[in-house]
Amino acid sequence: MCMRDGLLAGFAAGLLAAGVLALPATSPAAAAEGRYGFGTPATPEELARFFAIPPDGRGLPPGRGTVARGATVFAEQCVACHGEKLEGIPTPGIGGDKLIGGRGSLATKTPVKTVESYWPYATTLFDYVKRAMPFSAPGSLPDDDVYAVVAYILSQAKIIGPDDTLDATTLPKVAMPNRDGFFPDPRPERRLYR
């Protein structure tokens, strides 16, 4: 038995002997494994409400959405902040980002960063809309509507076609224009050591 295990077992035994805490004591099994045993197992049901969608699409929910349906969702849920032409509305009290345009601007003196010009993964757009949009009622859109509004934005950005449908299979395959536009952090910058 290594020293840490011994310490933990001793700690657990001390707790039991003193009976000082109303909390469940460390289980002998946990202590034997070098654990404290605090906390409780999380069930699949409890974890089911969480999501985070990486580029490979793991965890994308069932459902599907068309560009046409997305136009309706956008008009109902998004246009007030992001504008009829997805151009963004910077005025006080609103402040929705510009969503499309700017393609080819990144290497110029006036780069314009949008979903179209800058975002490397379509899965990120799905994740963010499902997570935090619309701003006035975050996380309220049904998955079908999230797929649909993502399809609408990507179609307005001419990244997918007007008749395309997005679902868990097709979304991760969307080729974003700036997919290869990122590279790992090279800092600390070597030039600063010359």
């Binding site: 985070a52 990486p54 580029p55 490979d56 899965t123 990120t124 990122f182 590279f183 952090d185």
Partner: peptide
């Protein structure tokens, strides 16, 4: 096993260089 590429680590908090390429996961503060 991999990063999730969330909005805050792709569209924001990345550093666009003059050549149009952007640094990703620029985490440390110099």
């Amino acid at each position: 096993d991999k990063p999730f590429m969330t909005r805050e680590e792709t569209s924001k908090y990345t550093d666009l260089m003059a050549d149009g390429k952007a640094r990703l996961f620029t985490l440390e503060m110099d």
